[in-house]
Design a protein around this nucleic acid. Structure first.
Lengths: 202, 202
DNA sequence: TGCTAATATATGCGTACGCATATATTAGTA
DNA sequence: TACTAATATATGCGTACGCATATATTAGCA
């Protein structure tokens, strides 16, 4: 339940409504955890029933009432213990590698076209995340704790590094496919000498 | 529905039972798409009702009947069109970056400990995937199409490259935290000159 | 005048998934 | 003797999620 803890993390900064949370999560963590509006409200209800947050309802004349949530002591202790615990990673889900895995069943041109679109998509996401670095930099309060800023920036750095690594890999892979490297693949060598695998390292 | 298409991909190689599929998927694609036994049977039912596969029931004396599924023409055309189409990537879900994002709320030591465990976990997965490269190499039939083998190996290569990139990033990041790089962070420079961001590039 | 965006919360519906368990039998091991 | 693994399929239960929609009002724009 990572979303629950992302919400706790934000409410530990300051009390907020579901509407506020939706916006702040969208601009700050969308490169490693995105969500939907409905999911935010549902998760708020759930963690309220667990006693991790509590709300204060503020009536408004011309708008729905604002339900301002704040973190409780139980919530703070849950949050802290979650942050400092190593959690088993989610099982990897990379659907486009299924396409690569079965690419032998289609033409080289077809899979090249898919990878080129993937490449364009990755470049676009890299641009977006680099822009978000500049945006968040421009929005820092003067009194923002540099240590907080450092950790926020680390997640952007990870996004950029990871995206760039994917872009590089696909670039190299496209070259291999276009040069028909599989024609040079030596199956016997692949099987025979595990110590010399680098020669066939695709 | 990527699992449906992974199943179609395998059934396009040869007819199989759900039990067989569970095993072959576990050893071949677990580094980019893992699943559970129950999910395989449910997905088989679903794609059968869509007409993508059909089954032949073979009675056995002392075991449950084998339901051998084979791909239909409709299934083949669905599979091919899926493989050659660019699909919008799933929204990224990287829970441990939520921990990094809110690490300012705990001690450096606490987050360092989490990242060190993450590092150990990544190294373990890298070892496992490198071993699987050797294993699959040793299991190739002599008559395996080198082009198929090439694409299979690409997915392993991606896994290794990506894992190594993550390992490297966490290594660099641990150094930054331990050297308290955030003390040198210049907020004003970060805000002022977008062209010189590299100076503060964490 | 009519549309859209912003403010604010809430629910219904369907999908995909994992975990646990049920059923049934044989073969091998402690 | 009692367990575990292997063979083989199937279902119940709960979770997390996204998409669409509902409700209600104001402000701004075309």
């Amino acid at each position: 339940m990572s979303l629950a803890h992302a919400i706790l993390g934000w409410l530990n900064v300051e009390p907020m409504t579901g509407y506020d949370l939706n916006q702040v999560i969208e601009i700050s963590t969308q490169h490693f955890w995105s969500t939907s509006q409905s999911q935010i409200y549902r998760t708020l209800s759930k963690i309220e029933s667990r006693g991790w947050v509590a709300k204060e309802v503020i009536m408004q004349a011309d708008r729905p009432p604002r339900k301002v949530y704040h973190i409780t002591e139980a919530g703070q202790s849950e949050l802290e213990s979650w942050i400092v615990t190593f959690h088993k990673p989610l099982p990897p889900r990379i659907p486009w590698l299924i396409q690569v895995f079965f690419a032998g069943q289609v033409s080289d041109e077809a899979i090249v076209s898919v990878l080129e679109k993937k490449l364009a998509n990755l470049r676009q996401r890299l641009q977006k995340i680099s822009a978000s670095r500049a945006i968040s930099a421009s929005q820092f309060d003067e009194d923002e704790d540099p240590r907080d800023v450092f950790y926020w920036m680390l997640t952007i750095d990870y996004g950029e590094t990871n995206l760039q690594a994917q872009i590089d890999w696909i670039g190299r892979t496209l070259e291999k496919i276009k040069s028909r490297e599989y024609e040079k693949l030596n199956l016997a060598a692949l099987k025979g000498s595990p110590g010399e695998q680098d020669k066939n390292h695709v």
